[in-house]
Design a binder for these strands. Structure first.
Lengths: 244, 244
DNA sequence: TTCCATGTTGCGGGATCCCGCACATTTTTG
DNA sequence: CAAAAATGTGCGGGATCCCGCAACATGGAA
């Protein structure tokens, strides 16, 4: 068995290397890649079936790399090893994992033992292992209370990209009013109504926030969005624009 | 001489510890803190004058920590050791460094030698050391071509926070029109005009972007903004709102 | 001093956005 | 199955936003 490590940081890379060797005596070779592009290439060359992947890498992030790898070989087992459990990452990962594929999501802050256990579970037992904290995030994002449905998330991404209502309507095949409707729901869930508005008088004073922009900001602050998610969304938008 | 290391990641922390001991034989004690809060506390307790600080930390980021430390003891020498050279970080740092203070900015991707050299230059020679790449960013953000003036950056942050034109006007003591004027300049610099608009017919077709939101997005993608900058701006906004 | 660059402010209007009111369709729930 | 809760759509209007046109102020450069 060979294991491919895709990780930006040299320190983390060598740490992973050691952890893999210690946890998997049956492993007879560890290959390293220092960014997503190289990871994809090497995975293709060596037909790697066991990969440990960092999520945030400068030249090409782990989600993109994993997606292309899984597209070519859906049975590949990938363990994501990340610093963060942002909802944006969790959503990004669960969106691309193929049916029945074995994968894992472990935080870098996890203990040595947790990492090694995860390595064995996924690569030997073909069993999914998801960090407690990450699992919590996943649950929350599905539960209806305080959680965002896919359609709400979708429109959040669209306004984050800076699309107009009309463009969103065309892109998502909706009427203009429906788009605005979804926006209402989004604003409600993000709690970005006009905050300190006193409804005493009829005057329309103190509207402090531009709801559209504000929504994006609080989504960022709540880690529903992050740079990586924006980057991916921007790329998808680019494709759609090319297709008119 | 004692050195305080403020760094999230255990691996990086121990690497730094070793580097400091190797580069500074005259150092007779290395203290470690694993987040910004602890860093501030320990710096206060030990009156640390020599600090190596990570910028992105989960509980409290390095810029905040450095600011409070420098507020109490402006002669403290701080070496920032960061993964990124985002303009947002560079601006954030240069905004808080006191007059005449010795500081440094080295990327984590720098070589061992560069790091050790920087440690000696700052802590022994009291000389500022700024990574080549970071310096480039700094220059660019000052140069008028392709660079953003302070006022433009200011309004960028304001719309990123989701403020309305009127609120921005009150906050920055400007007229409404001036705010909109600055926005025009910002849109121009970020190149977010209505892109594929055909001016042939009088019809107003194909306005794909909401300029306000779009501007924030491209600023993010160009790393003029990042999570840390948003977080700081949000905190400042909170203060201002409390003061009415 | 005169001229020109830069920045601020007013006015006005077309395009969007935000959203209440209504109604139809779909899905969920009891 | 029927009630209830989502969800999609149209209409309309008040508030904002985007921005051209134009008048001033300020501060150097010719």
């Amino acid at each position: 068995m060979k294991v491919l490590i895709v990780e930006d940081d040299p320190l983390h890379r060598s740490y992973l290397n050691e952890a893999v060797r210690a946890a998997l005596p049956e492993c007879d070779g560890v290959i390293e890649a220092e960014n997503g592009i190289a990871g994809e290439r090497i995975a293709r060359e060596y037909k790697s079936a066991h990969i440990v992947m960092d999520l945030q890498m400068s030249t090409r992030n782990g989600i993109e790399a994993a997606r292309t790898i899984w597209k070519e070989r859906p049975e590949t087992r990938i363990l994501f090893w990340s610093n963060y459990s942002d909802e944006a990452y969790v959503r990004g990962v669960s969106r691309i994992v193929p049916d029945g594929a074995a994968f894992g999501y472990v935080l870098k802050s996890a203990s040595d033992d947790r990492l090694k256990l995860a390595l064995r579970s996924i690569f030997i037992e073909a069993q999914c292992v998801i960090d407690r904290e990450v699992r919590g995030m996943q649950q929350k994002s599905l539960g209806h209370t305080n959680g965002f449905s896919d359609s709400e998330y979708e429109i959040l991404v669209d306004i984050a990209l800076g699309l107009t209502d009309r463009t969103i309507a065309r892109r998502r095949n909706l009427s203009l009013r429906s788009v605005q409707n979804r926006l209402q729901h989004l604003y409600e869930k993000l709690d970005v109504h006009h905050p300190s508005a006193k409804h005493d008088g009829p005057e329309h004073e103190e509207e402090r926030f531009n709801l559209r922009s504000r929504a994006v900001t609080v989504a960022f602050l709540r880690k529903l969005l992050n740079y990586s998610a924006l980057e991916r969304a921007e790329a998808e938008l680019g494709e759609w624009l090319r297709d008119r």
